[in-house]
């Protein structure tokens, strides 16, 4: 059943689109040349300052790493909120995990659905591909300063590896990486590590988010690699956790 479309509704939609178009036109069709200040700085000094060849990584995990921290937090909150709202009937925030009174029916519904749709092909292929995808994920994560990639991208690939393992893995428990509890631990530990890494500069007198590894005499790029690894772990564990929860295997 659908609601009736009234004249007022159409008028409202029309009004919105027209006014927004009026605003967009000057913004999209401006002839002001694109500024080159930031580009010139990055081209001339970016590599020396950060040690990374990939300038996007240099900005993302060097110059503007505080934004990345915020982004990681958005992801953390979104993952825990989404799990709270979907997988547990929403009462995680209200009552906490492991509460026996939560809604069980949704789980069983989902688990049986997953079992029905499984085929041997799916199990074999995903089971074999899983480890390969994991390795590729770690490659993307650790080589983010040299080539396109980085913590977030690598983390998402790792998460899909975890999902593959969960789909293809048999019940004999050959890996614990697909257990929700393990992933939750990994996620919270890597979040703690990220905060501590940001604070490490404070302890050694370099300031908040200062490059501690460079002060200790290691190459500048070390800090970016470290952050890439931590963020990758965190994203992989977080998104993996969310997917596992959506598969109905959170316990």
């Amino acid at each position: 059943m659908r609601s009736k479309i009234t004249g007022l509704f159409l008028f409202q939609v029309f009004l919105c689109l027209v006014t927004i178009t009026l605003v967009l036109i000057p913004l999209f069709w401006t002839d002001i040349p694109w500024p080159t200040i930031a580009r010139d700085h990055m081209e001339n000094f970016g590599m020396a300052a950060s040690g990374a060849r990939n300038m996007v990584s240099a900005i993302y995990l060097g110059y503007r790493v505080f934004d990345t921290l915020g982004e990681t937090i958005v992801l953390l909150v979104a993952v825990s909120g989404t799990i709270g709202i979907i997988a547990h009937g929403g009462d995680v925030l209200a009552k906490g995990f492991g509460d026996p009174s939560r809604n069980e029916s949704l789980y069983q519904e989902k688990t049986t659905l997953v079992k029905k749709q499984r085929t041997a092909l799916l199990e074999v292929v995903t089971g074999k591909l899983g480890p390969v995808v994991l390795v590729f994920g770690f490659y993307v994560m650790l080589f983010g300063h040299l080539s396109p990639g980085g913590g977030f991208q690598g983390g998402v690939v790792v998460a899909s590896g975890i999902v593959f393992l969960a789909l293809g893995g048999r019940a004999d428990g050959s890996t614990r990486l697909t257990e929700a509890g393990v992933l939750a631990k990994l996620e919270s530990i890597s979040f703690l590590l990220l905060i501590l890494a940001s604070l490490s500069g404070v302890v050694f007198g370099g300031g908040f988010f200062a490059n501690t590894l460079a002060q200790a005499g290691m190459p500048e790029v070390g800090f970016i690699v470290l952050l890439n690894a931590i963020i990758g772990l965190k994203v992989g564990a977080g998104i993996g956790f969310m997917c596992i929860a959506m598969l109905g295997r959170a316990e």
Partner: peptide, 13 residues
Amino acid sequence: EGIIGGWHESVGI
């Protein structure tokens, strides 16, 4: 005032 991490002002926060 300052720039987080002590980076250059043209790109840093």
